Computed example of a mutant assay.
Amino acid sequence: MNDFHSVGPTTDFPDPSSQLVEVDEIAVVLIHAAGHFYALDDVCTHDGGPLSDGDLCVEEATPTIACPRHGAQFALADGAAVTMPATKATQAHEVKVEGGQVYVRLCDSHANTRK
């Protein structure tokens, strides 16, 4: 049940960009930045804001996405909370690109939250 799910062709995700996608009924922000794809839960752990509405900061040593509500930043690579007011990471998911398609596999912690 922990399979990769296609979220669209690579051409749908310009570099840099972030876009809300649904993976097995879970809201995920898919990010394409500096030639890499990342997937994070679309939720700020500080107050539940939608990360997909936030700004990308890809020119720093640790590329991040910021919550549009209070500016908390999360590392693209692993979802770690980089700045306050967030202190807890958001969940990161595995991404692969094959045959011009982008695929996301949800982390194991979501296995019990799927309907």
Rank of each mutant, 00 (worst) to 15 (best):
D24Y: 04
A75T: 07
F4E: 04
S109W: 05
G71T: 08
A39K: 03
S17V: 10
D47N: 14
L51P: 04
T83C: 05
E94S: 15
R105G: 03
E59F: 05
V43W: 11
D55E: 11
V102Y: 06
G79C: 02
V29F: 08
P50C: 07
M1G: 14
Q73I: 07
V102F: 02
P14K: 01
K115V: 13
L76N: 05
G35R: 05
H70G: 02
A33C: 02
L56S: 06
Q101G: 04
G99S: 12
F37W: 06
G8N: 04
P63A: 13
P16R: 08
P68I: 02
T64H: 10
A72E: 07
P68S: 06
Q101F: 15
A80G: 07
G99N: 10
T10G: 05
A89R: 15
P85K: 06
P50Q: 14
S109K: 12
D24H: 01
K115P: 14
G71P: 13
G48Q: 11
P50F: 12
V23W: 01
F74M: 13
A81R: 14
S17E: 03
H70C: 01
P9T: 13
M1I: 12
K96G: 08
K115E: 10
P68R: 00
F37I: 02
V29E: 07
A75Q: 09
A61T: 12
D108M: 09
D15I: 03
L40N: 05
L30I: 08
E59L: 10
C44E: 01
P9V: 10
A92C: 06
D12C: 03
I26K: 07
D53L: 13
K96I: 05
H70A: 08
G49V: 01
G100S: 04
A27S: 15
G54A: 05
E60R: 14
Y103L: 15
F4V: 02
